[in-house]
Computed example of a mutant assay.
Amino acid sequence: MSSPFIEQLRADMRLRGYSLKTEKSYLGWVRQYIFFHKKQHPKKLGSNEVREFLSWLANERHVAINTQKTALNALVYLYQKALGITDFPHRHQE
Rank of each mutant, 00 (worst) to 15 (best):
Y77V: 02
M13V: 04
E7Y: 01
M13F: 01
Q93E: 12
L15F: 09
F53Y: 15
N48S: 10
R61P: 13
D12E: 09
L45T: 00
A64I: 02
K24R: 11
P4G: 10
V63E: 00
E52Y: 15
V76N: 09
W29V: 06
G17V: 04
S2F: 07
N59M: 09
L75Y: 08
A74G: 08
R31Q: 12
Q32A: 15
F5K: 02
F36Y: 15
L75H: 00
A82F: 15
E49G: 00
I65A: 15
F36A: 08
K24F: 07
H92A: 13
F53M: 12
S47T: 03
H41E: 05
L78R: 00
Q80I: 06
D12M: 04
Q40N: 10
A58C: 11
L72A: 12
I65Q: 14
D87M: 08
K21M: 04
F5G: 05
Q80W: 04
F53N: 10
G17K: 04
R61D: 11
W56F: 15
K44W: 05
R91W: 03
H37D: 09
G84T: 03
I6N: 03
K39N: 14
W56E: 08
F53D: 11
Q68Y: 01
I85S: 05
V63Y: 01
H62Y: 13
K44E: 10
E94T: 05
S55G: 15
H37G: 11
F35T: 08
R51T: 07
Q68M: 14
H92F: 14
K38Q: 12
H41A: 05
H62Q: 14
G46R: 04
V63T: 00
Q93S: 13
H92T: 04
I34V: 12
L54C: 11
S25Y: 05
T67E: 07
L20H: 13
N73R: 12
P4W: 02
Y77I: 03
L83V: 02
G28C: 05
F36H: 07
W29N: 10
S55I: 05
F35G: 05
Y77A: 09
I85Y: 14
A82T: 01
A58W: 08
Q32H: 13
K43I: 05
L78C: 04
N59C: 11
T22C: 11
L57Q: 03
D12G: 12
K38P: 02
K39D: 10
L9D: 02
L57F: 12
L9Y: 04
L78W: 09
S55A: 07
Q80N: 10
E60C: 13
S19P: 09
F88V: 05
G84P: 07
V50K: 01
S19N: 08
L27P: 01
F35M: 06
Q40E: 11
P42L: 02
A71H: 09
M13Y: 06
I6K: 02
H41K: 00
R91C: 02
A11V: 04
I65F: 14
H37C: 10
A64Q: 14
A71M: 01
L83R: 02
E23D: 10
H37Y: 09
H92S: 11
W56H: 15
Q40M: 10
M1N: 07
M13I: 04
D87L: 12
N59T: 10
L75K: 00
A82H: 15
R31C: 07
